[in-house]
Write a protein that binds this DNA or RNA. Structure first.
Lengths: 182, 182
DNA sequence: GCCTCTGTATAACGAACGTTTTACATCTGG
DNA sequence: CCAGATGTAAAACGTTCGTTATACAGAGGC
């Protein structure tokens, strides 16, 4: 069994639940079921662990995106599923940047990469769903709805995601009907 | 001059810029220009200071809401102005809850109060702008757009807020035209 | 059979944390 | 004019932090 993967999985849970700074290395070693020496041999430092957790999340996200998300509606359906099964604590990438004040370049970079790829994928989807449409502005609206669903679901739960899904569907339908982008 | 107000203003800036946990009491005393003894006499503890900062933000927010926001469009215009002048680091209430893991009841409470009042105000506005319409679902969509604009503007800047504003305008127009709520 | 690898358990490290204390200065109202 | 409130400066408190070091145990390949 891969010790490093176990560690990252345990760290993901703790960081998401309690925050990055509020999670101590002692809690992490205990949750991962390994000695601190092994932990440091595998990841180097707490900062490295944070980056590794984010990188792992990014990969999981991309995989899911490419496998089962080929429409705007499927995007929000996937988020509904995520919130229903894993709960909602807000975007872990932005939380990491916020807790570190944007002062850790590796954290900022992995967040930027993640968000850039999210934006690109949404633009791709929008372009195939509404062909011949200048999709940039519409894609940005979908992105904002997605981000809002993730954030608002912290205190509104699934209803926020369902509302975002409906709003996205309405905006997409309107664009398909050929309303001119302003 | 009110020492407590100075302290809260300085703390607001530091918390927003660097995060709550990452801001030490030493940094706070220095930024507020007072000794640690005075600081503790005025607020009691770091947790109390966090709560005080959030409570102050909530009051500022409410004041601005009631004065200059009487339409959905004005809501997003106000956010545009906020992001343009103060920058975008995400909702400080949700960041505080995230950093404390939801384990500090006073922090959770002030966040919940703030979000409840935001939701209520949006519902009010939507109801007056689209009378005779079952406004609950539409209001939730506007709320999600607002939350998404605040969050996405961290990495997208003003464009996210402008996009949210346009999307909100489209959804409101559609509702005014009498499209049935699904 | 020994050597290296990989692991545990645990204690120690110096630094930084939130908070309190001690000692002293300055203003203000009766 | 002095008593009380309110402030500063700075050290000390005990704890916890991230990280490293010490001592030892088992497994597998040559």
């Amino acid at each position: 069994m891969d010790k490093r993967a176990e560690l990252i999985a345990a760290a993901d849970r703790l960081f998401d639940r309690h925050g990055f700074m509020a999670t101590s290395m002692d809690q992490l070693t205990e949750a991962a079921g390994m000695s601190s020496r092994t932990l440091y041999k595998h990841i180097g430092s707490k900062t490295d662990l944070i980056v590794a957790v984010l990188a792992e999340r990014h990969q999981r996200f991309m995989r899911q995106m490419e496998v089962e998300v080929e429409s705007v509606d499927a995007l929000f359906a996937a988020l509904e599923n995520w919130v229903a099964t894993e709960g909602a604590n807000g975007c872990l990438f932005l939380r990491a940047v916020g807790e570190t004040g944007g002062d850790v370049p590796e954290v900022v970079d992995v967040m930027a990469d993640h968000k850039a790829m999210l934006g690109l994928r949404i633009e791709q989807i929008v372009k195939t769903e509404v062909p011949g449409h200048h999709a940039t502005d519409l894609a940005e609206q979908i992105l904002v709805l997605f981000e809002g669903a993730m954030t608002a679901s912290i205190y509104r739960g699934l209803y926020a995601v369902q509302s975002a899904r409906q709003a996205a569907s309405a905006l997409m339908a309107q664009a398909r009907r050929g309303e001119p982008p302003r």
